[in-house]
């Protein structure tokens, strides 16, 4: 890949993020002016690095589960045998998106207790819709000549799905996963209200103690992660699309 300016900018953000997570104390002078009454400028109730890794782990697990379920549903309803389940799947997935994650947390805690489980459920439900809708779009808008050819050369249904339909729909499916990941990265912060170990802990601690430095560092880490992951996945999509001769955006 060419080292163009946008690429350099992202590498710089990544480097800055890594340095901040490994040696947050180096940034103390920068954040100190944002604190009052000699409050600590760097989050001191846990390691920022550990919280970030925990945050990423929760998002990863929730998105993986959402991807598996949404993709399986999309494949099912695009087969002739499963077509009648399309309206039902759509409403199920839509409910997941309409229900605010906070409400899901509130409902889940009495049932399964505090910790990361309610957060995982909330993120999972919230992440289903973009992946499902994109997979549906990708699998139903395939070029008709190619689908026809896949039947014409004698591929059976499974071979058509695995060798032609899924690979061709992959860029669109990936776009859905990317949206879902970014939404989950931001939404995971509220998981800390029910004691999940996420970067929300830093932000909430800042809000409680009126410490702007905490709020800012929690928010910036989440923001930087979201931008980097979003751009990384976009680059993969573009690479796939270019290989297939579709104009990259």
């Amino acid at each position: 890949m060419r080292l163009s300016l946008p690429v350099l900018a992202r590498l710089f953000v990544l480097a800055l993020l890594v340095v901040f997570l490994v040696r947050p104390d180096w940034f103390e002078p920068v954040l100190k002016p944002l604190t009052q009454n000699n409050a600590p400028a760097i989050y001191n109730q846990g390691s920022l690095l550990m919280l970030t890794l925990e945050h990423l782990r929760i998002v990863f697990i929730a998105t993986l589960a959402a991807t598996l379920v949404a993709l399986a549903l999309a494949i099912l309803v695009t087969r002739p045998a499963g077509a009648e389940f399309l309206p039902l799947s759509r409403s199920l997935v839509n409910v997941g998106q309409t229900f605010p994650p906070v409400a899901v947390l509130a409902l889940a805690v009495p049932a399964i207790g505090f910790g990361e489980k309610p957060t995982l459920i909330a993120l999972f439900l919230y992440g289903l819709l973009p992946i499902f809708e994109n997979a549906l779009t990708g699998l139903t808008n395939l070029p008709s000549a190619v689908v026809e050819a896949a039947r014409g050369v004698g591929m059976n249904e499974r071979q058509r799905l695995l060798k032609v339909e899924l690979p061709l729909a992959l860029p669109v499916i990936l776009a859905g996963i990317r949206l879902s990941v970014v939404i989950s990265l931001a939404t995971a912060t509220i998981g800390s209200t029910v004691a999940a170990k996420t970067l929300g802990e830093v932000i909430i601690a800042g809000l409680i103690s009126n410490n702007l430095a905490f709020v800012l560092q929690g928010g910036l880490i989440v923001g930087a992660l979201a931008v980097l992951i979003y751009d990384g996945l976009s680059a993969v999509e573009r690479m796939l699309a270019r290989r297939m001769g579709q104009a990259g955006k």
Binding site: V146, A149, R151, G152, V153, G154, M244
Partner: peptide, 29 residues
Amino acid sequence: YELRRHIGYAIQGHGLFPHRTVAQNIATV
């Protein structure tokens, strides 16, 4: 699908698989 593997089929707009190379396309059947 077995039958179709033994009957060549060519269509307008060629219907080549865009994610596979020319050699892979020809090798399909």
